[in-house]
Design a binder for these strands. Structure first.
Lengths: 150, 150
DNA sequence: TATATTTGCATCGTGAACGATATAAATAAA
DNA sequence: TTTATTTATATCGTTCACGATGCAAATATA
């Protein structure tokens, strides 16, 4: 039938699958700490800059607040972050790492390298990764900018 | 802090984000037909080869049956497929396209090209797409083969 | 100042993903 | 032929994603 419809010709399917499988690669490293991958991403954001409003965290991860809010509540329940209303702007909810949340960075030091190594292969090497980064960044930039088709 | 932890150095985060954003690009094209993206993938699989057991569909999409089963039930409710037990092997559930499910291919002819175009950009062109495909395929092949780290 | 609009979060409902577990049919082993 | 094991699906519970909607605080407008 139409060649366009062949699964093997779909970029999106590859992205979708690669994303899921890499996500699974994190599981054995994060689950001992009762962490999920999106929660780990939130930690990455907060480790870079502590005490941020929900909106900033969501934007950084290209997510909506309705995804991040319940996620942050679970992280609060785990004792990793605190959430309190902003003083200047009472609409904002400021998210701050607890000592436990900060300390987790030590326990997870080898996560990036471990996952990084498990992804390296024939065509994905330290030399080619920058190319892959550029292509993915371009796709993200293109799709994040506009909701429509231009 | 540790450079390894910077969000901008994470391949996984790029894959995760690109996958989600491309997925969103499908939404306006699929939602008029009450289709989700994973359901569209199932259609792609069945359009290539009709009447397959759940397991074959799941394997083709690198998914588990516990993800695919409820998805297929929803597609059955939409009148896109039928599910019936195999005659030779009564453990299998054979999934077959209905006329409506087959006919949907006509209604969606321009989906692959439309999404394809919306992804093209500076560094992702008809010339570079094969490179991107190869890298993603290698990552998928590497992660799909083993559950561990070798 | 009173009203309208925007902004920042939160709530709700639905559909994936996926680990864990269950169940029946098919196959292998004893 | 019994019994044990494997295989093919399905069920259950939790956590995302995300569209739609609601609400209060902040800001803009009249």
């Amino acid at each position: 039938m139409d060649e366009m419809f062949r699964l093997d010709n779909q970029l999106c399917f590859r992205l979708y699958t690669a994303s899921r499988l890499v996500n699974q690669a994190y599981w054995p490293l994060l689950s001992p700490h009762h962490l999920t991958y999106p929660q780990y991403l939130v930690l990455l954001v907060l480790w870079e800059k502590d005490t941020q409003p929900v909106n900033d965290i969501a934007k950084r991860l290209y997510l909506e607040t309705n995804t991040v809010t319940p996620l942050l509540k679970r992280m609060e329940a785990l004792g990793l972050v605190t959430r309190k209303r902003g003083k200047e702007d009472a609409r904002q909810t400021l998210v701050t790492l607890t000592e436990k949340g900060k300390g987790l960075q030590q326990a997870l030091t080898d996560v990036p390298l471990t996952v990084g190594k498990s992804v390296l292969c024939e065509s994905v090497t330290p030399e080619t990764v920058p190319d892959l980064f550029r292509m993915l960044d371009d796709i993200i930039g293109r799709l994040a900018s506009h909701p429509d088709t231009p």
